[in-house]
Design a binder for these strands. Sequence first.
RNA 1: CGCGGCGUGGAGCAGUGGUAGCUCGCCAGGCUCAUAACCUGGAGGUCGCAGGUUCAAAUCCUGCCGCCGCAA
Length: 331
Amino acid sequence: MRLVMMGTGTFAEPTFEALLASPHQVVGLVTQPDRPAGQERGSTRQTGRGMKTIAQEHHIPVYQPESINTPEGVARLKEWAPDLLVVAAYGQILSNDVLSVPRHGGINVHASLLPKYRGAAPIAWAIYHGETRTGVTIIKMSVHLDAGDMLAQEAIDIGPEETAGELEARLAPLGARLVVRVIDQIAAGTVQGVKQDQALATRAPKLTKEHGLIDWTRTAAQVCNHVRAMQPWPTAYTFLHRAGQPPLRVLITRAVPFPVRHDPSAAPGTIFTDSRRPGALLVAAGLVSPEERTVVEVTELQPAGKRRMAAAEFLRGHPPREGDHFGPEKS
RNA sequence: CGCGGCGUGGAGCAGUGGUAGCUCGCCAGGCUCAUAACCUGGAGGUCGCAGGUUCAAAUCCUGCCGCCGCAA
């Protein structure tokens, strides 16, 4: 079959490479336009090789429209005369006109166990809500977001300390395997779809920076899920409040629940240490019962303008004083 | 020329014109049944680099290099 790949980012790469390795013919790549890429900064942010680079290595034509849902976009797709669109983390909703171009329409690789977590950030929201199991679903695309019939699904466990970035890295190859299987079935005419149960559908909206703000009144487990879910982007953050000093923005990059029973009268966000845990930065979190307040151990963080550091290092320069606490910018 | 923060002994920080300091680590010794323990002594910095202002600069000014955050 003649395939057009539509996708952006590291999640799409394994799928793209699997298509290229398959007997099917990849006739084009549609990906997001190049955004003005900031300065190179030594740090190795680029985990993937880039969809565009992969396409060029295989001499696949690339199309990067601001919107694919224009007459021009549809025309370009028609020129490629695809039998099927394969979509993974493309970032644009496809119009009916676009989906009507190929005779088999489009299929989407979605990183959740649909119908749960429909939307742009299924991995992060699954972790945020404390799920212990998630997976990949291949769906027939329809005009309604992530609501089409399910063509294949496979589940995996989520590690107790696994971040969204780590989980994505495991889900991407899983999706690539599934999608190739589904394409073979479509080609053979043996594919079978299963309707989604609308009643079980939940939303996983696109993340923004504001989603990173930590609410210390939630329980320790919830705060830690939040931290994992926001990693590596947009990253959980809070503000360090000290007497006589302006709030210091602090990114929290790793945190685990610390199983101690803690004084319920201590306010959420209060910073303290414990002799049983030398070098540990502990933060009071929300109540789980009137008698028990849970505690978060922050193990890695990044103060504004500084590099990422272990909690023990941070404590040397910021020894906790009475009244120091984490919280929103104003408190 | 997108905006901003920062570069001070091995680590993290304070110090904004006048003898370079704190916490941790390290070395030596002491104390203790014991403790992220405590006590004593010690090593380790040309305060990113180069100019300038000044009697005097980590501290003010200019340029450069490097690191980081935001915005994309």
